[in-house]
Design a protein around this nucleic acid. Sequence first.
DNA 1: TCTGGGGTCCTAGGACCC
DNA 2: TCTGGGGTCCTAGGACCC
Length: 428
Amino acid sequence: MGCRNLRNSQGLIAIVDCNNFYASCERVFRPNLTGKPIVVLSNNDGCVIARSNEAKALGIKMGTPAFKNDKLFSRNGVHVFSCNFELYGDMSRRVMDIIKPETDEMEFYSIDEAFLTFKGPASEERARALRFQILKWTGIPVSIGLAPTKTLAKVAVHIAKKNPSTRGVYSLSSPTSIERALYSFPVDDLWGIGYRSATKLKSFGISSALQLRRAHHGWVRRNLSVTGVKLQKELCGTVCSPVNEVIPRKQNIRTARSFGKEVETYSALKEAIGTFAVNCATKLRKEGSCCSTVTVFIHTNPFKPHALEYNNSRTLKLDVPTNDNMEIVAAAIKLLKEIYRPIFAYKKAGVMIGGIVPDSQVQLGLFDAVDRSRRSYLMQSIDEINSKLGRDKVRLAVQGFDRKWRLRQERLSPCYTTRFSDLLTVKI
DNA sequence: TCTGGGGTCCTAGGACCC
DNA sequence: TCTGGGGTCCTAGGACCC
Protein backbone atom coordinates (compact mmCIF):
# COMPACT_ATOMS: atom_id res chain seq x y z
CA MET A 1 0.00 0.00 0.00
CA GLY A 2 3.05 2.26 0.10
CA CYS A 3 2.62 3.43 3.68
CA ARG A 4 5.24 5.55 5.36
CA ASN A 5 5.68 5.68 9.08
CA LEU A 6 6.17 9.07 10.66
CA ARG A 7 6.26 9.31 14.39
CA ASN A 8 8.57 12.05 15.59
CA SER A 9 7.15 15.49 16.29
CA GLN A 10 8.77 16.85 13.12
CA GLY A 11 6.57 14.47 11.14
CA LEU A 12 3.36 15.95 12.48
CA ILE A 13 0.79 16.85 9.87
CA ALA A 14 -1.31 19.93 10.47
CA ILE A 15 -4.69 20.81 9.08
CA VAL A 16 -5.87 24.40 8.98
CA ASP A 17 -9.65 24.57 8.74
CA CYS A 18 -11.53 27.87 8.49
CA ASN A 19 -14.40 28.12 10.96
CA ASN A 20 -17.85 28.35 9.30
CA PHE A 21 -15.98 29.69 6.28
CA TYR A 22 -18.73 31.21 4.12
CA ALA A 23 -20.49 32.74 7.10
CA SER A 24 -17.16 34.11 8.35
CA CYS A 25 -16.41 35.67 4.92
CA GLU A 26 -19.73 37.52 5.00
CA ARG A 27 -19.08 38.70 8.54
CA VAL A 28 -15.63 40.14 7.80
CA PHE A 29 -17.29 42.91 5.77
CA ARG A 30 -20.26 43.32 8.09
CA PRO A 31 -18.67 43.62 11.52
CA ASN A 32 -22.03 44.72 12.93
CA LEU A 33 -23.06 41.05 12.56
CA THR A 34 -20.55 39.87 15.17
CA GLY A 35 -22.37 37.60 17.59
CA LYS A 36 -25.44 37.44 15.32
CA PRO A 37 -26.72 34.30 13.61
CA ILE A 38 -25.78 34.08 9.90
CA VAL A 39 -26.64 31.48 7.27
CA VAL A 40 -25.50 31.17 3.67
CA LEU A 41 -27.77 29.51 1.10
CA SER A 42 -26.88 27.33 -1.89
CA ASN A 43 -27.42 28.40 -5.50
CA ASN A 44 -31.02 29.46 -6.13
CA ASP A 45 -31.25 30.25 -2.44
CA GLY A 46 -32.23 26.60 -2.08
CA CYS A 47 -30.81 25.16 1.12
CA VAL A 48 -28.55 26.07 3.99
CA ILE A 49 -24.88 25.35 3.23
CA ALA A 50 -23.13 27.33 5.98
CA ARG A 51 -24.04 28.54 9.45
CA SER A 52 -22.36 30.71 12.04
CA ASN A 53 -22.09 29.24 15.55
CA GLU A 54 -25.10 31.32 16.64
CA ALA A 55 -27.16 29.82 13.79
CA LYS A 56 -26.03 26.30 14.74
CA ALA A 57 -27.13 26.98 18.31
CA LEU A 58 -30.62 27.80 17.03
CA GLY A 59 -30.85 24.26 15.68
CA ILE A 60 -30.62 25.19 11.99
CA LYS A 61 -29.45 22.05 10.23
CA MET A 62 -27.01 21.80 7.34
CA GLY A 63 -28.66 21.10 4.00
CA THR A 64 -32.21 21.88 5.04
CA PRO A 65 -34.34 23.76 2.49
CA ALA A 66 -34.44 27.50 3.15
CA PHE A 67 -38.23 27.76 2.80
CA LYS A 68 -38.72 25.31 5.66
CA ASN A 69 -36.66 27.58 7.91
CA ASP A 70 -38.34 30.88 7.03
CA LYS A 71 -40.16 31.26 10.34
CA LEU A 72 -37.15 30.25 12.36
CA PHE A 73 -35.07 32.83 10.46
CA SER A 74 -37.43 35.75 11.00
CA ARG A 75 -38.22 34.88 14.62
CA ASN A 76 -34.55 34.86 15.55
CA GLY A 77 -33.27 37.67 13.35
CA VAL A 78 -31.06 35.35 11.30
CA HIS A 79 -29.08 37.18 8.61
CA VAL A 80 -29.47 35.26 5.37
CA PHE A 81 -27.05 35.47 2.41
CA SER A 82 -27.08 34.00 -1.11
CA CYS A 83 -23.76 32.28 -1.72
CA ASN A 84 -21.05 34.47 -3.25
CA PHE A 85 -18.30 32.18 -4.48
CA GLU A 86 -16.37 35.02 -6.06
CA LEU A 87 -15.90 36.49 -2.59
CA TYR A 88 -15.19 33.16 -0.85
CA GLY A 89 -12.67 32.10 -3.52
CA ASP A 90 -10.72 35.31 -3.12
CA MET A 91 -10.76 35.15 0.71
CA SER A 92 -9.57 31.54 0.49
CA ARG A 93 -6.62 32.60 -1.68
CA ARG A 94 -5.67 35.23 0.92
CA VAL A 95 -5.74 32.70 3.77
CA MET A 96 -3.69 30.17 1.76
CA ASP A 97 -1.12 32.86 0.86
CA ILE A 98 -0.49 33.46 4.57
CA ILE A 99 -0.07 29.74 5.32
CA LYS A 100 2.21 28.88 2.39
CA PRO A 101 5.51 30.52 3.55
CA GLU A 102 5.33 28.66 6.88
CA THR A 103 5.22 25.24 5.27
CA ASP A 104 7.50 22.60 3.93
CA GLU A 105 4.71 20.85 2.02
CA MET A 106 1.18 22.12 1.58
CA GLU A 107 -1.96 20.59 0.08
CA PHE A 108 -4.92 22.77 -0.84
CA TYR A 109 -7.58 20.32 0.19
CA SER A 110 -10.68 22.45 -0.29
CA ILE A 111 -11.77 26.06 -0.39
CA ASP A 112 -11.50 26.27 3.41
CA GLU A 113 -8.96 23.61 4.38
CA ALA A 114 -5.28 22.88 3.85
CA PHE A 115 -3.02 20.06 5.04
CA LEU A 116 0.59 20.97 5.67
CA THR A 117 3.87 20.15 7.32
CA PHE A 118 5.67 23.04 8.95
CA LYS A 119 9.11 24.20 7.90
CA GLY A 120 11.20 23.00 10.84
CA PRO A 121 9.72 21.48 13.99
CA ALA A 122 5.94 21.55 14.43
CA SER A 123 4.50 22.72 17.72
CA GLU A 124 1.28 23.97 19.20
CA GLU A 125 2.89 27.39 19.66
CA ARG A 126 3.65 27.73 15.96
CA ALA A 127 0.12 26.68 15.12
CA ARG A 128 -1.23 29.33 17.50
CA ALA A 129 0.98 31.99 15.96
CA LEU A 130 -0.25 31.07 12.47
CA ARG A 131 -3.84 31.10 13.62
CA PHE A 132 -3.38 34.56 15.11
CA GLN A 133 -1.77 35.90 11.94
CA ILE A 134 -4.58 34.62 9.69
CA LEU A 135 -7.19 36.18 11.94
CA LYS A 136 -5.35 39.49 12.07
CA TRP A 137 -4.66 39.77 8.35
CA THR A 138 -7.94 38.42 6.92
CA GLY A 139 -10.48 38.45 9.74
CA ILE A 140 -11.14 34.74 9.22
CA PRO A 141 -11.01 32.54 12.36
CA VAL A 142 -9.43 29.13 11.79
CA SER A 143 -8.88 25.97 13.82
CA ILE A 144 -5.72 23.88 13.58
CA GLY A 145 -5.22 20.18 14.34
CA LEU A 146 -1.82 18.45 14.61
CA ALA A 147 -1.21 14.70 14.48
CA PRO A 148 0.94 12.01 12.81
CA THR A 149 -1.55 11.34 9.97
CA LYS A 150 -4.18 13.31 8.06
CA THR A 151 -7.00 11.22 9.53
CA LEU A 152 -5.79 11.89 13.08
CA ALA A 153 -5.21 15.57 12.27
CA LYS A 154 -8.87 15.70 11.22
CA VAL A 155 -9.81 14.20 14.60
CA ALA A 156 -7.65 16.81 16.33
CA VAL A 157 -9.15 19.76 14.47
CA HIS A 158 -12.64 18.43 15.18
CA ILE A 159 -11.82 18.46 18.89
CA ALA A 160 -10.34 21.97 18.58
CA LYS A 161 -13.57 23.24 17.02
CA LYS A 162 -15.87 21.63 19.56
CA ASN A 163 -13.98 22.69 22.67
CA PRO A 164 -13.52 26.43 23.29
CA SER A 165 -10.93 25.60 25.98
CA THR A 166 -8.51 24.56 23.22
CA ARG A 167 -8.62 28.12 21.82
CA GLY A 168 -8.63 26.76 18.29
CA VAL A 169 -5.57 24.51 18.34
CA TYR A 170 -5.31 20.87 19.38
CA SER A 171 -2.42 18.47 19.06
CA LEU A 172 -2.46 14.68 19.15
CA SER A 173 1.16 13.63 19.30
CA SER A 174 1.61 10.95 21.99
CA PRO A 175 0.14 7.44 21.76
CA THR A 176 -1.79 7.96 25.00
CA SER A 177 -3.36 11.24 23.91
CA ILE A 178 -4.39 9.62 20.61
CA GLU A 179 -5.93 6.63 22.34
CA ARG A 180 -7.81 8.80 24.79
CA ALA A 181 -9.18 10.99 21.99
CA LEU A 182 -10.28 8.03 19.85
CA TYR A 183 -12.02 6.40 22.81
CA SER A 184 -14.59 9.17 22.99
CA PHE A 185 -14.67 10.04 19.27
CA PRO A 186 -17.85 8.86 17.48
CA VAL A 187 -17.13 6.72 14.45
CA ASP A 188 -19.60 8.83 12.38
CA ASP A 189 -17.38 11.88 12.73
CA LEU A 190 -14.34 10.20 11.20
CA TRP A 191 -13.11 11.48 7.84
CA GLY A 192 -14.23 8.90 5.29
CA ILE A 193 -17.10 7.40 7.30
CA GLY A 194 -20.45 8.51 5.94
CA TYR A 195 -23.98 7.65 6.93
CA ARG A 196 -23.98 4.21 5.25
CA SER A 197 -20.74 2.96 6.77
CA ALA A 198 -21.56 4.38 10.19
CA THR A 199 -24.87 2.51 10.24
CA LYS A 200 -23.16 -0.70 9.23
CA LEU A 201 -20.41 -0.29 11.85
CA LYS A 202 -22.91 0.40 14.63
CA SER A 203 -24.94 -2.65 13.73
CA PHE A 204 -21.79 -4.62 14.53
CA GLY A 205 -21.29 -2.79 17.82
CA ILE A 206 -18.56 -0.43 16.62
CA SER A 207 -19.43 3.10 17.66
CA SER A 208 -16.13 4.73 18.66
CA ALA A 209 -13.04 5.43 16.56
CA LEU A 210 -10.98 3.36 18.99
CA GLN A 211 -13.23 0.33 18.43
CA LEU A 212 -12.73 0.70 14.68
CA ARG A 213 -8.98 0.96 15.16
CA ARG A 214 -9.04 -2.33 17.09
CA ALA A 215 -11.43 -4.15 14.74
CA HIS A 216 -10.30 -7.28 12.89
CA HIS A 217 -8.43 -6.28 9.70
CA GLY A 218 -10.06 -8.91 7.50
CA TRP A 219 -13.50 -7.84 8.65
CA VAL A 220 -12.70 -4.20 7.82
CA ARG A 221 -11.42 -5.22 4.38
CA ARG A 222 -14.58 -7.17 3.61
CA ASN A 223 -17.01 -4.59 4.92
CA LEU A 224 -15.38 -1.23 4.17
CA SER A 225 -13.09 -2.19 1.26
CA VAL A 226 -9.55 -0.88 0.90
CA THR A 227 -10.75 2.59 1.85
CA GLY A 228 -11.58 1.24 5.32
CA VAL A 229 -8.23 -0.54 5.60
CA LYS A 230 -6.36 2.71 4.88
CA LEU A 231 -8.51 4.57 7.38
CA GLN A 232 -7.73 1.96 10.03
CA LYS A 233 -3.99 2.23 9.38
CA GLU A 234 -4.11 5.99 9.59
CA LEU A 235 -5.85 5.69 12.96
CA CYS A 236 -2.87 3.58 14.06
CA GLY A 237 -0.49 6.36 13.04
CA THR A 238 0.70 4.96 9.71
CA VAL A 239 0.62 7.49 6.89
CA CYS A 240 -1.34 6.14 3.91
CA SER A 241 -2.29 9.51 2.51
CA PRO A 242 0.72 11.84 2.55
CA VAL A 243 0.49 15.60 2.16
CA ASN A 244 0.19 15.92 -1.60
CA GLU A 245 1.59 19.12 -3.04
CA VAL A 246 0.95 18.59 -6.71
CA ILE A 247 -2.63 19.18 -7.72
CA PRO A 248 -3.53 16.30 -10.02
CA ARG A 249 -5.11 17.02 -13.38
CA LYS A 250 -8.90 16.88 -13.09
CA GLN A 251 -10.50 13.75 -14.52
CA ASN A 252 -13.95 15.29 -14.96
CA ILE A 253 -15.24 18.82 -15.20
CA ARG A 254 -18.87 19.67 -14.90
CA THR A 255 -21.16 22.65 -14.83
CA ALA A 256 -24.73 22.01 -13.76
CA ARG A 257 -27.44 24.25 -12.40
CA SER A 258 -30.93 24.08 -11.04
CA PHE A 259 -32.98 26.79 -12.69
CA GLY A 260 -34.59 29.64 -10.75
CA LYS A 261 -37.74 28.98 -12.77
CA GLU A 262 -38.57 25.81 -14.69
CA VAL A 263 -37.48 25.97 -18.32
CA GLU A 264 -39.86 24.69 -20.99
CA THR A 265 -38.66 25.93 -24.35
CA TYR A 266 -35.92 24.30 -26.35
CA SER A 267 -34.34 27.65 -27.13
CA ALA A 268 -33.96 28.62 -23.45
CA LEU A 269 -32.57 25.19 -22.60
CA LYS A 270 -30.15 25.49 -25.51
CA GLU A 271 -28.87 28.81 -24.15
CA ALA A 272 -28.27 27.24 -20.75
CA ILE A 273 -26.52 24.16 -22.13
CA GLY A 274 -24.42 26.36 -24.45
CA THR A 275 -23.33 28.50 -21.51
CA PHE A 276 -22.52 25.46 -19.34
CA ALA A 277 -20.47 23.97 -22.17
CA VAL A 278 -18.46 27.19 -22.58
CA ASN A 279 -17.95 27.25 -18.82
CA CYS A 280 -16.55 23.69 -18.89
CA ALA A 281 -14.29 24.50 -21.86
CA THR A 282 -12.92 27.56 -20.08
CA LYS A 283 -12.06 25.53 -16.96
CA LEU A 284 -10.49 22.91 -19.21
CA ARG A 285 -8.20 25.46 -20.91
CA LYS A 286 -7.21 26.86 -17.53
CA GLU A 287 -5.90 23.39 -16.64
CA GLY A 288 -4.10 23.07 -19.97
CA SER A 289 -6.19 20.03 -20.85
CA CYS A 290 -8.40 18.68 -23.61
CA CYS A 291 -11.43 16.41 -23.26
CA SER A 292 -12.55 13.48 -25.37
CA THR A 293 -16.11 12.98 -24.14
CA VAL A 294 -19.03 15.36 -23.64
CA THR A 295 -22.12 14.45 -21.61
CA VAL A 296 -25.37 16.38 -21.33
CA PHE A 297 -28.12 15.68 -18.82
CA ILE A 298 -31.54 17.20 -18.14
CA HIS A 299 -33.96 16.64 -15.23
CA THR A 300 -37.51 17.60 -14.39
CA ASN A 301 -38.24 18.62 -10.80
CA PRO A 302 -38.13 15.46 -8.63
CA PHE A 303 -39.89 17.21 -5.73
CA LYS A 304 -42.99 18.18 -7.67
CA PRO A 305 -45.85 15.94 -6.61
CA HIS A 306 -47.96 14.20 -9.29
CA ALA A 307 -45.79 15.53 -12.12
CA LEU A 308 -44.38 13.09 -14.64
CA GLU A 309 -40.63 12.74 -14.20
CA TYR A 310 -38.11 12.71 -17.00
CA ASN A 311 -34.35 12.30 -16.53
CA ASN A 312 -32.03 11.64 -19.37
CA SER A 313 -28.37 11.93 -20.27
CA ARG A 314 -26.24 11.12 -23.26
CA THR A 315 -22.52 11.03 -23.99
CA LEU A 316 -20.61 11.71 -27.20
CA LYS A 317 -17.06 10.56 -27.90
CA LEU A 318 -15.01 13.08 -29.87
CA ASP A 319 -12.66 11.93 -32.62
CA VAL A 320 -9.93 14.32 -31.51
CA PRO A 321 -9.66 15.63 -27.92
CA THR A 322 -10.39 19.36 -27.79
CA ASN A 323 -10.79 22.36 -25.52
CA ASP A 324 -12.40 24.55 -28.16
CA ASN A 325 -15.61 26.36 -27.21
CA MET A 326 -17.25 25.86 -30.58
CA GLU A 327 -16.57 22.14 -30.78
CA ILE A 328 -17.67 21.40 -27.22
CA VAL A 329 -20.80 23.53 -27.59
CA ALA A 330 -21.66 21.85 -30.91
CA ALA A 331 -21.36 18.41 -29.30
CA ALA A 332 -23.46 19.47 -26.31
CA ILE A 333 -26.24 20.94 -28.46
CA LYS A 334 -26.30 17.83 -30.63
CA LEU A 335 -26.78 15.71 -27.49
CA LEU A 336 -29.44 18.02 -26.12
CA LYS A 337 -31.40 17.71 -29.37
CA GLU A 338 -31.40 13.95 -28.94
CA ILE A 339 -32.74 13.88 -25.39
CA TYR A 340 -34.98 16.97 -25.31
CA ARG A 341 -38.73 16.18 -25.07
CA PRO A 342 -41.05 19.16 -25.49
CA ILE A 343 -43.77 17.99 -23.12
CA PHE A 344 -41.72 18.52 -19.96
CA ALA A 345 -40.66 21.52 -17.87
CA TYR A 346 -37.02 21.20 -16.84
CA LYS A 347 -35.63 22.09 -13.44
CA LYS A 348 -32.00 21.18 -13.82
CA ALA A 349 -29.46 20.59 -16.56
CA GLY A 350 -25.74 20.20 -16.92
CA VAL A 351 -22.72 19.50 -19.08
CA MET A 352 -19.94 17.16 -18.09
CA ILE A 353 -16.65 16.57 -19.89
CA GLY A 354 -14.33 13.63 -19.40
CA GLY A 355 -11.58 11.61 -20.99
CA ILE A 356 -9.26 14.44 -20.06
CA VAL A 357 -5.68 14.54 -21.42
CA PRO A 358 -2.96 17.20 -21.38
CA ASP A 359 -3.32 19.46 -24.44
CA SER A 360 0.29 18.71 -25.37
CA GLN A 361 -0.54 15.04 -25.88
CA VAL A 362 -3.43 15.36 -28.30
CA GLN A 363 -3.19 12.97 -31.23
CA LEU A 364 -4.45 14.62 -34.37
CA GLY A 365 -7.02 12.81 -36.48
CA LEU A 366 -6.29 11.93 -40.07
CA PHE A 367 -9.37 13.67 -41.45
CA ASP A 368 -9.41 16.56 -39.01
CA ALA A 369 -11.26 19.50 -40.54
CA VAL A 370 -10.51 22.07 -37.84
CA ASP A 371 -7.52 24.42 -38.03
CA ARG A 372 -6.48 23.85 -34.44
CA SER A 373 -3.69 26.35 -34.07
CA ARG A 374 -5.81 29.27 -35.31
CA ARG A 375 -8.67 28.21 -33.07
CA SER A 376 -6.43 27.99 -30.06
CA TYR A 377 -5.28 31.62 -30.58
CA LEU A 378 -8.92 32.63 -30.79
CA MET A 379 -9.71 30.85 -27.50
CA GLN A 380 -6.70 32.46 -25.82
CA SER A 381 -7.93 35.90 -26.86
CA ILE A 382 -11.45 35.19 -25.62
CA ASP A 383 -10.09 34.01 -22.25
CA GLU A 384 -7.91 37.11 -21.91
CA ILE A 385 -10.70 39.53 -22.74
CA ASN A 386 -13.18 37.81 -20.44
CA SER A 387 -10.77 37.63 -17.54
CA LYS A 388 -10.22 41.40 -17.81
CA LEU A 389 -13.75 42.57 -18.56
CA GLY A 390 -15.84 39.92 -16.83
CA ARG A 391 -17.20 36.48 -17.59
CA ASP A 392 -18.98 35.92 -20.92
CA LYS A 393 -18.34 39.45 -22.22
CA VAL A 394 -17.28 37.76 -25.45
CA ARG A 395 -19.71 34.93 -26.06
CA LEU A 396 -21.12 32.61 -28.66
CA ALA A 397 -24.53 33.53 -30.10
CA VAL A 398 -26.00 30.33 -28.70
CA GLN A 399 -25.39 31.54 -25.14
CA GLY A 400 -28.03 34.23 -25.67
CA PHE A 401 -28.80 37.24 -23.51
CA ASP A 402 -32.12 36.70 -21.75
CA ARG A 403 -30.89 33.98 -19.34
CA LYS A 404 -34.43 32.93 -18.48
CA TRP A 405 -32.81 30.02 -16.65
CA ARG A 406 -30.71 32.18 -14.34
CA LEU A 407 -30.27 31.54 -10.66
CA ARG A 408 -32.26 33.14 -7.97
CA GLN A 409 -29.90 35.15 -5.74
CA GLU A 410 -32.01 37.53 -3.77
CA ARG A 411 -29.60 38.21 -0.95
CA LEU A 412 -26.25 38.39 -2.69
CA SER A 413 -23.53 40.34 -0.92
CA PRO A 414 -21.12 42.59 -2.85
CA CYS A 415 -17.83 41.18 -4.22
CA TYR A 416 -15.89 43.41 -1.84
CA THR A 417 -12.43 42.22 -2.79
CA THR A 418 -12.66 41.49 -6.52
CA ARG A 419 -14.71 44.31 -8.12
CA PHE A 420 -13.90 48.00 -7.97
CA SER A 421 -17.61 48.79 -8.16
CA ASP A 422 -18.19 46.78 -4.97
CA LEU A 423 -15.47 48.32 -2.80
CA LEU A 424 -16.59 49.31 0.66
CA THR A 425 -16.94 53.03 1.26
CA VAL A 426 -16.19 54.32 4.71
CA LYS A 427 -17.90 57.47 5.96
CA ILE A 428 -16.10 59.51 8.56
C1' DT B 1 -43.68 29.45 -5.01
C1' DC B 2 -39.19 27.47 -2.72
C1' DT B 3 -34.97 21.14 -1.86
C1' DG B 4 -26.81 22.90 -4.28
C1' DG B 5 -22.76 22.01 -7.05
C1' DG B 6 -18.41 19.85 -8.02
C1' DG B 7 -15.45 16.42 -7.30
C1' DT B 8 -12.83 11.52 -6.03
C1' DC B 9 -12.18 6.54 -5.40
C1' DC B 10 -13.67 1.70 -5.38
C1' DT B 11 -16.16 -2.41 -7.02
C1' DA B 12 -18.77 -5.47 -9.85
C1' DG B 13 -20.05 -6.95 -14.15
C1' DG B 14 -19.94 -7.12 -19.17
C1' DA B 15 -17.37 -7.24 -23.53
C1' DC B 16 -13.54 -8.68 -25.73
C1' DC B 17 -9.06 -10.97 -26.63
C1' DC B 18 -5.71 -14.79 -26.58
C1' DT C 1 -19.52 -24.44 -32.44
C1' DC C 2 -18.07 -25.17 -27.80
C1' DT C 3 -14.92 -25.22 -23.87
C1' DG C 4 -12.07 -22.56 -20.22
C1' DG C 5 -8.75 -19.81 -17.72
C1' DG C 6 -6.68 -15.38 -17.50
C1' DG C 7 -6.15 -10.75 -18.63
C1' DT C 8 -7.64 -5.87 -19.93
C1' DC C 9 -10.71 -2.19 -20.63
C1' DC C 10 -14.93 0.21 -19.96
C1' DT C 11 -19.10 1.56 -17.55
C1' DA C 12 -22.53 2.10 -14.04
C1' DG C 13 -23.45 2.57 -9.46
C1' DG C 14 -22.27 3.25 -4.62
C1' DA C 15 -20.09 5.86 -1.08
C1' DC C 16 -17.87 9.71 0.43
C1' DC C 17 -15.98 14.59 0.77
C1' DC C 18 -16.46 19.81 1.09
